[in-house]
Lab assay of single mutants.
Amino acid sequence: SSQSQGISSSSTSTMPNSSQSSHSSSGTLSSLETVSTQELYSIPEDQEPEDQEPEEPTPAPWARLWALQDGFANLECVNDNYWFGRDKSCEYCFDEPLLKRTDKYRTYSKKHFRIFREVGPKNSYIAYIEDHSGNGTFVNTELVGKGKRRPLNNNSEIALSLSRNKVFVFFDLTVDDQSVYPKALRDEYIMSKTLGSGACGEVKLAFERKTCKKVAIKIISKRKFAIGSAREADPALNVETEIEILKKLNHPCIIKIKNFFDAEDYYIVLELMEGGELFDKVVGNKRLKEATCKLYFYQMLLAVQYLHENGIIHRDLKPENVLLSSQEEDCLIKITDFGHSKILGETSLMRTLCGTPTYLAPEVLVSVGTAGYNRAVDCWSLGVILFICLSGYPPFSEHRTQVSLKDQITSGKYNFIPEVWAEVSEKALDLVKKLLVVDPKARFTTEEALRHPWLQDEDMKRKFQDLLSEENESTALPQVLAQPSTSRKRPREGEAEGAETTKRPAVCAAVL
């Protein structure tokens, strides 16, 4: 046999249950609850290399294929790409003598399909299967379609040439079993990697079954959420508030809700932002270029202005709740996480202390139980975000031990490091100062900020419009641009040419 590394010779191994799959997660993409704000000051410096380099560890398999027929071997997927077919160049070659004697062998292509993985959001991997055969590759009886790919989820059954000719079961060793999710959700989405997690739940990458488009699904544990919100009269209202707010909003710089499922837990389906959180971008770069800050901040102002015009105060604006559309420097941003939002009543007064301390406005800290506050709290938070983006460190921090965090904020005395700000323009610093004003009545509004000289930049605004146009074009394009080929190089076993392929839609398939 010419099988590559990772293939075992026996096809009769006992199949494990899916609970053996491991679970991976990374930083929070968007969480309903406010958790302790991640610290920006503690960015690790590059460490000196050791005298002796450690040995390379043996790579762990990321997936496993269990053979369902004699003549096929099990495969431990270690590499990122595997070709399957009769050709000797394939990493998994159909060359077992037992297999060659079967009637089905002649229906398999020289290069029938490939399984591979690509880097997705949060640097996690996504597994795909890609059909290159004349007679078809099927996943859970659905045709992939020649020249098309679809994501592979845990426990997928792979069939060759005929939908009933099941050859492998695919085990993704990095994700959960699909069966743990409600059927209504599974009918519409293929669940994938964990993108982030918080005290009350997690955010998962998923794929729409009909279109193969990526989405983010925010899962909120009702049990954990009820415990964490025990002081509230009705904890469920917080989730329902977020859903109702998101459904009503329609702005290019605000995250869109696509679906909602109320089962044992809450499942909020949101558009996916491939670039992750602004927080991670700031930490990764230490600070952002001023031109990049301007492009992002302009969009934040437009989003918050839209919220305020619609009578909504976000109340928890922070870099973790600003998501980026891509890994590119120039990209769209979207505001997310409306769990603490407040729809303005007639009095415009709110007395609930919520939000993240580092970003809270002075009037929030001094008015607990005594007075109210209004939309100006969001403008203060925007000032803190702009400060961080321009400088790479927070204006107020618990680690300045000589003054408490509350006193720093209520006095408006931010930590100004001259040598850092020497590289920032006077106009940018002036806008920061106009937003970090203790008196909410004297603080800049979103309208005033948008009129500030720093943002009178036609090149930046043109760039934003171009990015918007690109997004609109990409969302308007159909996901499947061509029909699967019906040509046949070899006959199917026991049926006429093209008899099955043309009847089945290529579900969740995307043209390369």
Results as ranks from 00 to 15, higher is better:
C253N: 07
R451M: 15
N321V: 00
T356R: 00
V269I: 11
E274F: 13
E329L: 06
V480E: 00
R375C: 13
I257M: 07
R287A: 14
T347E: 02
L450Y: 03
I333P: 07
L249V: 05
S348F: 15
R351C: 14
V420G: 09
P357I: 04
Q465T: 05
Q299W: 00
D337K: 03
A263M: 08
K334V: 05
A476E: 00
E419K: 07
E271Q: 08
Y298A: 11
Y266R: 15
G275M: 03
L295P: 07
V507D: 04
R351Q: 06
F416P: 06
L512T: 10
S341V: 01
K342C: 08
Q483N: 08
L390Y: 03
K258T: 07
R287G: 15
N285S: 09
D265P: 15
H251R: 08
V282R: 03
K318D: 03
K258F: 08
V364E: 05
I313N: 15
L429P: 07
Q408V: 00
S326A: 11
C331L: 08
I343V: 02
E274R: 10
N310K: 08
L435C: 00
S411V: 06
I268T: 12
K294F: 03
L270Q: 04
A361Q: 03
P491A: 15
A371V: 09
T292L: 14
K258R: 05
A291S: 10
V403C: 00
H308Q: 15
E398Y: 02
P357T: 13
L353Q: 09
K334W: 02
L246Y: 00
S404C: 14
A510L: 09
W454G: 06
K318P: 00
L288I: 05
F444Y: 13
K413N: 05
L349M: 12
E264W: 03
P362V: 02
L302S: 08
I245M: 02
V304L: 12
P252D: 08
T445A: 13
E242L: 05
E458R: 05
G276V: 03
L324S: 08
R315P: 03
K248C: 07
K281M: 10
E346V: 14
V480R: 15
V282W: 03
L301A: 12
N374L: 01
Y306M: 10
V432E: 01
F338Q: 02
R351P: 02
L324M: 09
L270Y: 01
K294E: 09
T352P: 02
I312H: 01
A496H: 00
L360K: 07
L317K: 00
L246V: 03
Q327E: 06
K503L: 09
Y373R: 02
L429K: 06
R315A: 14
L450C: 14
R400W: 09
I268S: 14
S326H: 02
I335Y: 04
H314S: 02
F338Y: 02
A509Y: 15
A476F: 09
F387I: 02
L435W: 07
L349T: 10
L317A: 05
E328N: 06
V282Y: 02
R287P: 10
E448W: 08
E346Q: 12
G276Y: 05
E244C: 15
M273R: 14
V366G: 07
W380Y: 15
R375I: 09
V366R: 06
K294D: 08
C354G: 04
L332F: 10
E329M: 10
Y298W: 08
I312L: 03
I243R: 05
T501E: 08
I255N: 06
T356W: 01
P491M: 14
K318R: 02
E264C: 06
A361W: 01
K258H: 10
L272I: 11
K247N: 08
L455F: 12
E271W: 10
E426R: 13
R287Q: 10
K434S: 10
E346N: 10
V304P: 06
L249E: 07
S474N: 15
N285H: 14
C379L: 08
I333D: 01
C253F: 06
D330P: 11
S469L: 09
S381L: 00
K247M: 13
L295D: 06
V438E: 05
I333W: 01
G369F: 15
V282H: 04
I257R: 14
N374R: 06
